[in-house]
Amino acid sequence: MTVQTEESKSSNEDWKPKIIAFLCNWCSYAGADLAGVSRIQYPPSIRIVRVPCSGRVNPYFIIKSLTDGWDGVLISGCHPGDCHYLTGNLVARRRFAILNELLQFFGIEPGRVNFMWASAAEGERFAMLVRKATSIVKKLGPNNKFEKKW
């Protein structure tokens, strides 16, 4: 069984995408916390997985998320230069630049997987990014590229 029930897959207006978010512990996860403390509302579409650093996010995690039926994936780390681990986010950036091309080659629509930065002070920006990602994924519709067709 995968994350989504059949019902939620229907592509009507009410369809609410499910997005998995990998957030680095020091900036983006803290930014998400700040959005909460500031009571900034955003769509309840995301489920957050805390990782020590965006550099920890293995490309497998992203592919696994897509094959497991998440409608979108969001990866957010510290702004370039702000990494708690000095250069982890830069390693991640290089890695994802390549992964992005690979995903497009697979036929994953641009926008289903989002890489971005949000600092610990950017609660509002974090909420904005979630809103944006949600609306893009909503437009793309359910992720059914990996459903067995037979």
Partner: peptide
């Protein structure tokens, strides 16, 4: 424990305790 090494390891030989691939999967 940042995991920059692990995400790039081509043969998945590196894992991060507390944030293992298995756990995140």
């Amino acid at each position: 424990g940042c995991g920059a090494c692990s995400g790039n390891c081509r043969c998945s030989a590196i894992d991060i305790l507390g944030f293992t691939g298995e756990q995140i999967f």
